[in-house]
Write a protein that binds this DNA or RNA. Structure first.
Lengths: 201, 201
DNA sequence: GTCTATACCTCGATAGAC
DNA sequence: GTCTATCGAGGTATAGAC
């Protein structure tokens, strides 16, 4: 039953804490408590706080990018892909609410960690989806614009409302339940919004 | 010439450091160095690190909200307002590149500070712009949607690419100069994108 | 008001017994 | 492998001379 290795226990405890508090905000003691073990064991398995964080960040970022990129590949019309993308993307964040803030935090405080992940993943700037979008633009089926801009717009519209949740809640005066309902509605609204923006007439 | 009060020197030095590093990341020594004064003077003028941070956050947040809200008030068609909003908003962030990350950081780590600012500002959920949008929707001039969603979409599209700058740069392989040019293009592209998304037909 | 010196604490990391 | 004890760096905050 309790056959999870100590290393695994530490890893998932650390992940939980780091996701919420970031590298600077997290305390080794907190992680040890969460894992139900002694503080010095953290160093036995992962030498330093930085190394522990780095492992977690790399794994999380790699999974995230892989999943996001793959959701845009494959068959299907642009419109269907957009609807699928928004749905999956928002769904993913709803299930992993701390990931956006976590990524943003690393991006601004430890950008080199991100660069390392890029190198390991050999991220390519030209994906299937971009070629497909370009094709539709050339054929005159959708508005001509930079494909990067369109992708960025889609991601912005999905992620930002989660990052800014407390801000939006404060301004609009919404409770937590209100906000959940609010985001569910957004899931339906967003694809229409995006599709209209790229439609010819 | 050098007639800036010590308090002012501390304040602007602290602002600079806090904006970049956040409450947790900033060091009092760093702030003192930046201000060219002794560490203990920080405590003489502002008692604690938290109090110093709070003053800076409150002032920054209040200015930001006031400016954003006011940019949407007044006369003018919806389309003109949207164009103006995007231009001003992106311009503002270009001049204050650390503000988005700073706000996001506080939002996630010290949400109560944000709530305090809301209380002091007595932020109202119904602004002029929302009424105007609602009116245009009722008249059938633009697509019917929640006015909050439209505002959030606009803000998302403006801010997010700045927050995610290193990420986008990494994926698209853009240098810093490339990115500046990229954002300039976005300033032109965004209003068209938004206007198309809310147009009837 | 401004400085030096220092108290006091938190935290990451290590030594060493078991 | 796991624990206790402790070190040492670095942080905020204060006391006290000038």
């Amino acid at each position: 039953m309790e056959d999870i290795s100590t290393e695994q226990k530490i890893y998932s405890a650390a992940k939980q804490i780091f996701l919420k508090k970031g590298l600077q905000g997290a305390r080794m003691q907190e992680i040890a408590d969460e894992a139900g073990i002694n503080k010095s064991l953290l160093h036995y398995y992962f030498r330093t706080k930085e190394k522990l964080f780095q492992e977690i960040f790399e794994e999380t970022a790699t999974k995230l990018f892989t999943s996001v990129i793959s959701s845009l590949e494959g068959d299907g019309s642009i419109e269907i892909k957009i609807r699928l993308f928004v749905e999956r993307y928002i769904g993913f964040i709803q299930e992993n609410p701390y990931i956006p803030q976590f990524m943003i935090n690393v991006i601004s405080q430890n950008p080199d960690m991100l660069l390392q992940v890029f190198e390991k993943m050999k991220i390519q700037p030209k994906y299937e989806i971009m070629k497909q979008l370009q094709l539709e633009m050339d054929k005159g089926n959708i508005i001509k614009m930079r494909t990067e801009d369109l992708i960025i717009n889609m991601v912005s519209l999905c992620i930002f409302p989660f990052i800014a949740k407390p801000l939006i809640q404060g301004i609009l005066g919404k409770s937590d339940e209100d906000y959940i309902a609010f985001m569910e509605e957004r899931k339906k609204m967003l694809p229409d919004f995006i599709v209209r923006a790229i439609q010819i007439n």
